[in-house]
Nucleic acid binder design. Structure first.
Lengths: 157, 157
DNA sequence: CTCCTTTTAGTCAAAGATGGTCAAATTACA
DNA sequence: TGTAATTTGACCATCTTTGACTAAAAGGAG
């Protein structure tokens, strides 16, 4: 385990051990680990992805930053996580998504309005593209939304 | 958050907490924050925009001033209709959509959570497809969502 | 009144400070 | 040995800060 990316990953993970988010300076971190600044991006892009439960925000320019937010481990989140892995998969139809959203509405994870927004945004009509990829795009997007929902109470400053 | 612009923004926002408008003196404020007077313009131009619900008036010369007024949109449907036809068009970038959503948030058409849902559902990352069609799909879907918001703004919640 | 001076605010572009992207080069691994 | 993962650097994009120059309003001297 001699590679820098893994080391940087560990460093960030440990920074997140007792906090739900951490702010880093790309340049400082790069200097600290004696690597190219873009290596920080590489680590973030490959290890701190939405898929793995991380959300990122950043700002350039004076006093810029990169914020990494870890999705919390609550009951609701565990539930959402389950949905993501078990029910959504790599492809999903509009109808199946509707069923899942009904369940989420029932369990007070989303409001009626939020359900309708998601349904409309990812409807067959909205995703005007070949059927071969439509269900794939919908699955990817829907999973991203569900991940974001996990965090919707925490990350909003 | 060490940058002066953010500090000045906070100062002005807090001045507006209990009033719908505030008068400032550009030079005094610049002196107070030890910055260039034009920095005040920078803050005003980037943070107190119409998109974010502010309008400005000013006068030069002796006893000149800058007045910042907080406004809010009222006619939701006409406003959304306008957005759909004028601002979205056939293609839209993720960034531009974010700006529009900021405005909608400011005008209480969507909540922070709803904004985040739309942003995530139609983000570049979610719409994993060639760039040539990404902005088109986003525009189509976003307009559908806006239309839905229009119809539901009366009945929902 | 008219012109000049003073007092404000506005514009714009350069410089500085960060982070982002991409692809070539290198290294690790199956 | 060939493919995937990592490392690096050149170049790009965005946000902030500063200052020189411009524009407008008010007040006063004549």
């Amino acid at each position: 385990m001699a590679n820098i990316s893994d080391t940087i990953e560990k460093f960030i993970v440990s920074s997140l051990e007792n906090n739900s988010s951490v702010d880093i300076s790309r340049n400082s971190l790069a200097e600290y680990f004696s690597c190219a600044p873009s290596q920080i991006n590489y680590v973030l892009d490959t290890r701190f992805t939405l898929d793995r439960g991380y959300i990122k925000e950043s700002k350039r320019g004076g006093s810029g930053f990169i914020k990494i937010i870890k999705v919390q481990n609550t009951d609701t989140n565990a539930y959402l996580n389950n949905l993501i892995t078990d029910s959504v998969g790599d492809e999903i139809t509009e109808k199946r998504m509707g069923q899942i959203l009904d369940k989420l509405l029932n369990d007070f994870v989303v409001t009626e309005k939020e359900k309708n927004i998601i349904l409309m945004a990812l409807s067959d009509d909205s995703l005007s593209m070949p059927f071969t990829i439509k269900d794939k795009v919908r699955a990817k997007s829907f999973k991203n939304v569900l991940t974001k929902l996990m965090n919707s109470s925490k990350s909003d400053e």
